[in-house]
């Protein structure tokens, strides 16, 4: 039997006094590209933080490659949601390099091998032209590429990408997804890719992990993105509409046409 890349068993997690994951169980096959969907507050970031060991579950467990790794020892690259960039006046290269063996005590002086590793990560995401530029002069999408390069350092086998498409225009969304997908295939990585909008991932993802109301549903697109499946998950009538090769999820009675898959959260 193949050991899952990530396995959650009866996982229960609270955030801000609210239970965001309630006895959730799933197993992510290794090497798969998984879209983690759900509205704001559905528990996507909490799930990632729990996998990384930054949140302690109230109940249940989460295993990475069948093991409980100590904090910082798991083979996971993490790209958090882009918030304030402290790096500001430092160059893109130095921002990425800061994560290379960043937990090791000593001075931030990089050997030739370490510099080559940083360069390779930048090249892998086509960000070499950003290396010399100050981070504060970069656009949101360019900063996202640097964060992705950072997540690739130290040879991870699993990538947790928290909203990597945020602040990108639709053309860039598709291009970024393709880049991540190709990279993951080339390196045999398991990818958990959280997003509000499933459409830029169509054709790339192997599975969908849909989070709503503390529950989770894992399966391929045709299994999860159906009216009966999401209605059961939300516990209320939800309709999945396919149009022009795109998916829309609307709450029953929702009059607006919404371009994302989680509008059930918004119209409720």
């Amino acid at each position: 039997m193949i050991t899952p890349a990530i396995e959650a068993g009866q996982l229960t997690v609270s955030y801000g006094g609210r239970r965001v994951l309630d006895h959730v169980s799933f197993a992510i096959p290794p090497g798969s590209f998984v879209a983690v969907l759900g509205g704001n507050g559905a528990g996507k970031t909490s799930l990632f933080r729990t996998i990384l060991g930054l949140n302690t579950p109230e109940q249940g467990h989460v295993l990475v490659e069948g093991q409980r790794f100590g904090k910082g020892r798991m083979p996971v690259g993490y790209m958090p949601q882009m918030r304030r960039m402290v790096a500001g006046q430092l160059s893109g290269w130095h921002m990425v390099a800061a994560a290379l063996r960043g937990r090791v005590w000593g001075v931030p002086w990089y050997s030739a091998a370490e510099r080559a590793e940083v360069n390779a990560a930048l090249n892998a995401v086509d960000a070499w032209e950003l290396a010399a530029r100050p981070v504060m002069s970069l656009s949101g999408g360019e900063r996202q590429r640097l964060l992705l390069a950072q997540a690739l350092l130290d040879h991870p086998r699993i990538l947790l990408l928290d909203e990597p498409l945020a602040s990108l225009d639709p053309a860039r969304m598709r291009e970024t997804t393709r880049r991540i997908h190709d990279l993951a295939r080339e390196r045999g990585l398991t990818v958990l890719f959280s997003t509000h909008d499933i459409n830029p991932l169509m054709g790339f993802m192997d599975h969908v992990l849909y989070l709503a109301h503390g529950k989770a549903l894992l399966g391929n697109v045709d299994e999860v993105m159906t009216t009966p499946a999401l209605t059961a998950l939300y516990g209320a009538p939800v309709e999945v509409v396919r149009a022009d090769g795109r998916l829309f999820v609307v709450a029953d009675g929702g009059a607006d046409t919404l371009h994302c898959c989680d509008c059930a959260e918004h119209t409720r």
Binding site: R49, L52, G53, L54, G70, K71, G72, R73, V76, Y78, M79, P80, V86, A87, L90, M95, A98, A99, R101, G102, R103, V104, W105, G106, V107, P108, Q150, A151
Partner: peptide, 20 residues
């Protein structure tokens, strides 16, 4: 402490995830 301090200063969330 400057190497982990630099990491923690620039990317606190990732640094924490990496065990800093």
């Amino acid at each position: 402490m400057s190497r982990p301090l630099l990491f923690a200063s620039l990317q606190p969330e990732v640094a924490e995830a990496k065990g800093v």
